[in-house]
Design a protein around this nucleic acid. Structure first.
Lengths: 339, 339
DNA sequence: TTGAAAGCGGTACCAC
DNA sequence: GTGGTACCGCTTTCAA
């Protein structure tokens, strides 16, 4: 792919590289380049379809106009949607985005951050595995622009855009309670993720506030890579006499999907026997019988805000750390017993 | 983010940049650098956590170790899953991937390709809007390494990894026929996408082969940005006497989801009144009542193969164009009337 | 009003 | 065995 360079234009037009660069960067007037030359240059650049070499430009300027996005898994609908917003908004400001999936592995996350840095990204947006405080701290110490999304390090003062996990679960639990359920269970992932801890707290606090007992048997935490069989056992145990639940809140959309599968296998009627609510949406939740009530996460806004903050940082303004917690809402459908 | 450079190491060690570069790139032995100096260099590089500046390296080498991924929408589960595979495989070969969503707009696709090129990506993987033959042709003429996925330009000889659209639909139609349905409809998107044309052909050919009539009323093509209302009208018209269908094949997963929504609203029983099959999967298809039979697309393999071919091209081997058509399979569930 | 030159951080050729 | 040096393409300062 032969590309035309500044030098090419220079030779062709018999004007120096520097002048051409100045003009093409829009500093023509301020540097008092004559109208004529300006036009000649712009004209020719357009004709020859000149596009500056970003690598060279970046090397010289010390910036790359690239934003790195480090997330657990781009294949997950949740992150994919966030990525979409991020890319869109970044593009509008002239940035491209490089992404990488960590698979929730600390080691890979660390590598990826390093790799992105050596690649010269101007800033990072990270949904951290939360087992990588070291790298994040390093970024912070070096004053490198970055914003954490969805998962934060509570001990670290950093930019952060997240959602109200506790409040979201609380919405769900309250909804179930309001519909008359008292023995409510909670299925989540083993801690390690702050978000999961907050969701658990949301569950516990709300139950307590409403004066409902939380039995040990009500709470189940699966490994991140659980099997459908494990979910089956969990759900089975939850619906068993004498501690059987009347409602379940699932801490993520995929847990909910697995849970529903298990409930079907067990021939448990939803919501008659057990009502349920999912934290997080899934595309076809409205098509499932009964349609699934879900906590709707503010994905779009999350992506948008993350980019906004990062861009502000990149432009050097508003350098103090910002923590933004977006609120969740509840999409009520039949699975919770309503309607 | 202060970074240590080759020059820093050079000064510190009193060894020239060139030697250091040689060693750090693993050409130490072949260039007969003494074991001692090699060790000294490697040692120090490790201690000081030296990471080469990719921009500089890229500028010098004329390559960036970046692959550009241009797709309609990273938020769509289908592309997100492909992206995941691509990123994973690319990373294993030392490449990072920059992505951009075109929103199916020719104009933006064109811009994005340009932008990626000026960014110095080494190769491109593109799911084109198919309204952009011009840019693709330009890439081809310039011998720039790229591979088209999912959508190809039939007139152009290029690398391509796609799926057997015709065969996939054929599987679906045959399945319905086998289960006794004769009046089978097909809901698709307005052409413009080769894949859609092929799917339509698959439908028509299979019907014809089996001696079934295809009435005009059986085929409906919606705009890419259709509304749920439009889908409702389409489905409504399809189930109306006297031309009512007994089965419907939806050309994409989201069309199927909308279609199911419409069928529910119309109180049509699936599969008793109308059986249906979706081309393409959705996460919760197995949870819908009845569970949705779907053509399973070879997403993982598609991503893998695309990267493989691109890497081969980048390494300069196997330069002739390769067209790969992956086959689809059918995941049979109740919605088609089986079981 | 324009241009020469240095430098961004590497790589690689060719002398020493 | 090792190092000097030119160059990748662009930006920017300073001099003309």
């Amino acid at each position: 792919m032969k590309k035309i360079t500044l030098q090419d234009i220079a030779s062709h037009l018999n004007i120096s590289k520097s002048t051409i660069s100045t003009v093409l960067n829009g500093h023509g007037d301020e540097k008092r380049v004559s109208k004529e030359t300006q036009e000649k240059i712009i004209q020719f650049a357009k004709e020859s379809n000149y596009k500056a070499n970003h690598l060279a430009r970046g090397l010289s300027l010390g910036k790359s106009d690239m934003i790195g996005l480090v997330i657990p898994n781009i294949g997950d609908n949740y992150y994919a949607r966030i990525a979409r917003r991020i890319e869109r908004k970044a593009r509008l400001s002239g940035y491209n985005v490089v992404f990488s999936s960590t698979g929730e592995k600390q080691e890979r996350e660390s590598e990826l951050i390093q790799s992105m840095l050596s690649r010269g990204v101007d800033g990072l947006i990270i949904a951290s595995s939360q087992k990588n405080e070291e790298d994040i701290l390093k970024l912070k110490k070096n004053n490198f622009p970055f914003v954490l999304i969805e998962r934060c390090y509570p001990e670290l003062e950093t930019n952060f855009v997240g959602e109200d996990n506790e409040g979201g679960v609380s919405l769900a639990v309250k909804q179930l309670i309001q519909l008359g359920r008292k023995r409510i269970g909670f299925v989540s992932l083993k801690p390690g993720l702050e978000a999961m801890r907050m969701r658990l707290e949301g569950y516990q606090n709300t139950m307590e506030q409403r004066g409902l007992v939380v039995r040990d048997e009500f709470i189940h935490e699966l490994e991140y890579e659980y099997s459908e069989d494990e979910m089956y056992e969990v759900v089975k145990s939850m619906v068993q006499f004498p501690t059987s639940v009347e409602g379940i809140v699932f801490a993520t959309h995929f847990l909910a999907a697995s849970g529903i599968r298990a409930l079907k296998q067990l021939n448990i009627r939803v919501p008659m026997d057990v009502a349920l609510i999912s934290f997080g949406q899934m595309n076809a939740f409205d098509l499932i019988e009964p349609p699934v009530t879900a906590v709707v996460q503010p994905v779009d806004e999350l992506g948008d805000r993350a980019v906004e903050i990062l861009l502000e940082n990149l432009e050097g303004k508003n350098l103090n750390h910002r923590k933004i917690i977006l609120s969740n809402s509840l999409k009520i459908r039949k699975s919770c017993g309503a309607i």
